[in-house]
C-alpha cells in the first residue's frame, strides 16, 4: 500500500554556472516555463548529457511538470538523456553521403572503435549517432565530431580522428556555436 511519495529518482543541485546561464535566459522570455529547452541545452553543455537528476533540478527550478520537460527533452534528438562520450559523432548516412561511400567510413569506425549507432567507445571518448543530412552534401561524405565538421571523410581520416588531431591527412573545419 506504500506509494512512492513523488518520484524514485532524485534531484541534483544545479551549479552556479548553470544557474547563471538559466537565469539569463529567464530574462528573455515572458514565462519561466518557456525556458525549458534552453535550460536543457545549458545543462547538457555543462554536463555532457541530461540525467534524471538534472531533469528534476530543471523542472523544480522552472516549476515545470517533469513529464512535460521530458516531452521536450525526448522530442529533440540532440538532447541526450543517456550518457555520451566526450565527443559525439553525428554521422550522416543520408543519400548524398551514402552515394559517396559513407558505409566504408562507418565500417572503419566500427573496426577502430568497436561501436555501432547509439554506442559509446570503451574509452568513453566517442559516441556514434546517425543523422539524416548535415546540409553539406557537396562535401559528402561528412560527419560532425563535437563542434567540428569533417568533410570528404574517408577511412584514412577516420584513422586520423581516432589517433588524434595532430594527423595532417585530416581536414578540419571549425564551425561556430554548438548547434
Amino acid at each position: 500500500m506504500q506509494h512512492k511519495l513523488i518520484s524514485s529518482s532524485s534531484s541534483r543541485v544545479l551549479s552556479a554556472a548553470e544557474l547563471e546561464e538559466i537565469d539569463h535566459e529567464l530574462t528573455l522570455y515572458p514565462t519561466k516555463q518557456s525556458v525549458g529547452l534552453e535550460a536543457l541545452k545549458i545543462v547538457q553543455r555543462h554536463q555532457g548529457w541530461v540525467s534524471d537528476e538534472s531533469m528534476h533540478a530543471i523542472a523544480n527550478y522552472l516549476e515545470l511538470p517533469l513529464a512535460e520537460l521530458e516531452g521536450v527533452a525526448t522530442f529533440f534528438n540532440l538532447i541526450y538523456r543517456r550518457p555520451v562520450g566526450k565527443r559525439v559523432i553525428l554521422f550522416c548516412d543520408s543519400v548524398s553521403c551514402w552515394i559517396m561511400g559513407c558505409e566504408k567510413n562507418k565500417a572503419r569506425l566500427a573496426e577502430r572503435l568497436g561501436i555501432g549507432y547509439g554506442e559509446t567507445s570503451a574509452d568513453g571518448e566517442f559516441t556514434l549517432i546517425p543523422v539524416p543530412c548535415l546540409g553539406d552534401c557537396d562535401k559528402a561524405p561528412v560527419m560532425m565530431v563535437g563542434d567540428t565538421m569533417h568533410r570528404q571523410v574517408d577511412p584514412a581520416s577516420i584513422d586520423a580522428l581516432v589517433e588524434g588531431p595532430g594527423n595532417k591527412a585530416f581536414t578540419v573545419d571549425k564551425v561556430g556555436g554548438d548547434e
Binding site: P65, L66, A67, G71, T74
Partner: peptide
C-alpha cells in the same frame, strides 16, 4: 493533469509519465 505527456517524436511517440508511478 501534469504527469502524463507526449514524448519523443514520429514513429517513437510515447504517451506516459516521466517514470513509472501512479
Amino acid at each position: 493533469g501534469t504527469d502524463l505527456a507526449a514524448q519523443a517524436s514520429h514513429h517513437h511517440t510515447y504517451f506516459g509519465r516521466f517514470e513509472d508511478g501512479t
